[in-house]
Simulated assay, not measured.
Amino acid sequence: MHNTKEKIVLASIKLFNEHGVASVRLQQIADETGISVGNLAYHFRNKEAIVSSVYEKLFDEFRQLLSTYLLTPSFADFDGQMAGYFEFFKTYRFYITDLFSAEHPLPDIQAEWEMFMNKMILQIKNRIDFHVSRGELLPESSQGTYYLISESIWMTLVFWIPQQTLRRKPVTEGRYRTAVWNHLKPYFTQKGLDTFELISPVLSQN
């Protein structure tokens, strides 16, 4: 069973997803948690403290997700991390407005977001280089091509869910992963195609 502080954090995430971080008031969080504002203040002195705790949870999960990088050297490993990204960005949907705030009320959070996003792109580029070295992706046709593709994959991982939601399109894990793989398919070698065939049936089931 969740303790009260955990319930407050989970209620806050739900409300942030529905209304945005800036719009949610302490009274709403208290009501969603089923406690009084006074009880809420006992656990968190202000909204900023709640936001910090939400981000502590968010960044801890993101850190764990990044740590799954190359657990096994395979396309399946990359596909598994994609599935993790899907669950993460679906769970913390409020990130899309908070991530790009011109002046974030908590600058440390904005700085950490930037660090995580840069690490994502670096991991993607390293994955591509690794699969080129294994003969599963074609060598780079011109310098910088795979870095640009890494950025495009990053944009898909981060922005696919909100843009699909905005356009009232289905948001499923299979479609998400397919959208990412489509960036790399034109660069598969025959060996890469044969390897990808082993995981493509799984995509069609989601």
Rank of each mutant, 00 (worst) to 15 (best):
152 S>D: 07
125 K>V: 13
139 P>Q: 05
129 D>Y: 13
126 N>S: 15
141 S>I: 09
146 Y>C: 03
135 G>M: 14
157 L>I: 08
149 I>D: 06
160 W>G: 02
157 L>G: 07
146 Y>H: 04
139 P>L: 08
148 L>A: 10
129 D>R: 15
127 R>M: 12
152 S>R: 09
135 G>N: 13
142 S>W: 04
153 I>G: 03
125 K>Y: 14
160 W>D: 09
126 N>L: 13
148 L>F: 10
157 L>D: 02
156 T>I: 04
136 E>W: 12
148 L>Y: 10
159 F>L: 09
126 N>A: 14
157 L>A: 08
142 S>G: 06
151 E>V: 12
150 S>Q: 01
125 K>F: 15
149 I>G: 04
143 Q>K: 11
151 E>T: 09
150 S>A: 10
140 E>N: 01
159 F>D: 05
141 S>Q: 13
138 L>V: 07
152 S>N: 09
158 V>A: 07
130 F>A: 15
150 S>M: 00
154 W>S: 12
126 N>I: 10
146 Y>S: 03
139 P>E: 03
131 H>L: 15
133 S>A: 15
155 M>I: 06
132 V>N: 08
138 L>I: 05
142 S>E: 11
134 R>V: 11
127 R>I: 10
154 W>V: 02
134 R>N: 12
159 F>C: 05
149 I>Y: 08
146 Y>D: 03
134 R>I: 06
128 I>M: 11
158 V>R: 04
141 S>H: 09
137 L>Y: 03
128 I>D: 08
129 D>A: 15
152 S>E: 07
135 G>C: 12
149 I>T: 07
145 T>P: 00
156 T>D: 03
150 S>H: 05
143 Q>I: 07
153 I>E: 02
129 D>I: 13
157 L>P: 00
159 F>E: 04
130 F>I: 14
127 R>F: 15
137 L>N: 02
151 E>P: 03
153 I>T: 03
129 D>L: 15
132 V>Q: 10
136 E>Y: 12
139 P>M: 05
